[in-house]
Design a protein around this nucleic acid. Structure first.
Lengths: 143, 143
DNA sequence: ATAAAACCTCTAGCGACTAGAGGTTCAAGT
DNA sequence: ACTTGAACCTCTAGTCGCTAGAGGTTTTAT
């Protein structure tokens, strides 16, 4: 069963530990985000704990919606003096998210209004189609 | 100046009227969303008002965040009996948006907490990096 | 020894465009 | 009539973050 040294993980095991899919792990390696692991004689990847930590960092960042580029930069920040830069990246991401939330709330309001118009329509016309056809009835702003 | 029949629009004019970029108009045509216009002898597109209306419908739908597939279906709905289906598409989109809002609010909370931890840290360590490294400190859920 | 599961590489596809190359047509001014 | 330059044309490839599939090899368990 435990025929691997216990500090070594197959890609499947790394996937199970991290929750990241196997093809995604290979993808992260290919784009240089995850360091290349050692290989067996048969060319299979064998990972160490350090890879698991790195991958968890990446996955956590992705769950928080950071781009792979942002994560790449965060991974490169090691010195205490980099804290400012990390802060900046997070702030930027936060304000992007706030922007998206605002926009989505606007869309939600408009869609709700459309549905309401459709429900209360006394005619046989479809208000949804009509409203979509007529831009001037809309409060949506350009992104 | 007005050397075109006034019911005909060049692609540039259509772009200006609709707010949709020229390459995007060609793209919509290519994927069959916008009907093919007539061409001049020199192979240039000449649009009619009906194209403008169609394009405005598409653009408005996109501004509201509908997928091109959803828009394609909405465009095909012409009979009054299609109102139900239109309603369904809008409802679906609305609940997608509500889901996104919820998730983004969660991310926002977490990022704010990260920044707060970083600011109030008494040590030289970067709390942002640390928190990203340690999944267990995180409340983010899988999408 | 064999069979199944897990691994490998490589390419192509998703959505909704955008950018660029390299060439043609049109409309206005002289 | 001619020239200029803006606007047009097609085509391919790139963006982001994966995902799917083909076709083959290695590992592990029986």
């Amino acid at each position: 069963m435990a025929s691997l040294p216990d500090h070594e993980l197959t890609i499947g095991a790394l996937s199970a530990e991290s929750g990241c899919k196997v093809p995604t792990i290979r993808y992260y390696e290919k784009i240089g985000l995850l360091p290349e692991p050692l290989r067996t004689g048969g060319n299979q990847r064998r990972y160490r704990q350090s890879h698991l930590k790195c991958l968890q960092f990446i996955c956590h960042g992705r769950e928080l919606g950071f781009s792979l580029d942002a994560i790449r930069e965060l991974l490169s920040l090691n010195s205490p003096s980099s804290c400012q830069r990390a802060d900046q990246i997070v702030h930027q991401h936060l304000s992007d998210i706030e922007g998206k939330i605002e926009r989505l709330l606007g869309l939600k309001a408009e869609l709700s209004a459309m549905l309401h118009a459709c429900e209360t329509s006394q005619t046989y016309d479809c208000r949804v189609i009509e409203i979509l056809s007529d831009h001037s009835q809309c409060v949506a702003k350009k992104h």
